[in-house]
Simulated scan of single mutants.
Amino acid sequence: RPLHYRTLMGSRACVRMAAAAWGSGFLNALLHTANTFSIPLCQGNVLDQFFCEIPQILKLSCTDAYLREVGLLVVGICLALGCFIFIVVSYVQIFTAVLRIPSEQGRHKAFSMCLPHLAVVSLFVSTVMFAYLKPPSISSPALDLVVAVLYSVVPPAVNPLIYSMRNKELKDALKKLIEVVLVQQQ
């Protein structure tokens, strides 16, 4: 029940989690912005992306960007590792609680609600790791663009679909729509 966090967990825990998320996001954005504006660009300002990706900006730099890349990588890994550990601990607690449900039907219903979200998180984490940790030898503008779309567009686009599919009325309407389409194709 994601909308009941305040009553289930207490307001202190909610405030701490929100502050941690906002603080780490702000710190990460501040570091990337400061780094971006301090880089001298000598290869133009055209990126082979549809939004500014840090690795793409570093490719335009006149100076050796090795230390900047390492610094950004270390900060990014620390933030990502912290988030990843938090997510894993959360899912372990969720799965432990679900496994304590006495009825098989209750466990199945609980797992069916968690697994789609876990799939979206896994898609996001795996594509981000591939995007930022792949060796430069397999890097190409087309591959970089596809991977960037996978981790920046697909998970946010899929989330509303996943959460709305829990709604029984929406499921029934979607079934009716599919039946109508199938009947029209015959």
Rank of each mutant, 00 (worst) to 15 (best):
37 F>S: 07
38 S>D: 00
41 L>H: 08
41 L>W: 07
42 C>M: 03
44 G>M: 07
44 G>Y: 03
45 N>E: 12
46 V>M: 06
49 Q>G: 07
49 Q>L: 04
49 Q>R: 13
59 K>D: 11
59 K>P: 04
60 L>Y: 08
60 L>W: 15
61 S>H: 12
61 S>Y: 09
61 S>N: 06
64 D>E: 08
65 A>R: 13
66 Y>F: 10
68 R>C: 03
72 L>I: 04
73 L>F: 14
73 L>N: 09
75 V>Y: 15
75 V>W: 15
75 V>M: 12
76 G>H: 13
76 G>L: 10
77 I>D: 00
79 L>P: 00
79 L>E: 00
80 A>D: 01
80 A>M: 10
81 L>K: 07
81 L>C: 09
82 G>A: 09
86 F>E: 00
87 I>R: 04
87 I>Y: 11
87 I>H: 05
89 V>T: 05
92 V>W: 01
93 Q>F: 05
94 I>Y: 02
95 F>T: 08
96 T>I: 03
98 V>I: 14
99 L>P: 06
99 L>E: 07
100 R>Q: 08
101 I>G: 04
101 I>V: 12
104 E>C: 11
104 E>A: 09
104 E>K: 14
105 Q>C: 02
105 Q>V: 06
106 G>P: 06
108 H>N: 01
109 K>D: 06
110 A>Y: 11
111 F>Q: 00
111 F>T: 01
112 S>Y: 03
112 S>H: 11
114 C>T: 04
115 L>P: 01
115 L>T: 11
116 P>E: 03
116 P>Y: 05
118 L>Q: 03
119 A>P: 03
121 V>K: 00
123 L>N: 09
123 L>I: 12
123 L>K: 13
123 L>H: 14
124 F>W: 14
125 V>G: 02
128 V>L: 10
128 V>R: 08
129 M>A: 08
131 A>W: 15
131 A>G: 03
132 Y>H: 08
134 K>I: 03
135 P>M: 15
136 P>I: 02
137 S>R: 15
139 S>K: 09
140 S>Q: 05
141 P>D: 01
142 A>H: 14
142 A>R: 12
143 L>I: 15
144 D>V: 12
148 A>T: 09
149 V>M: 12
151 Y>I: 01
151 Y>R: 04
151 Y>P: 03
151 Y>D: 03
151 Y>L: 11
152 S>A: 13
153 V>G: 07
156 P>K: 14
157 A>Y: 11
158 V>E: 00
158 V>W: 13
160 P>H: 15
160 P>T: 11
160 P>N: 14
162 I>H: 10
165 M>Q: 06
166 R>W: 12
166 R>C: 05
167 N>D: 08
169 E>Q: 11
170 L>I: 14
173 A>W: 11
175 K>R: 15
176 K>P: 01
177 L>E: 04
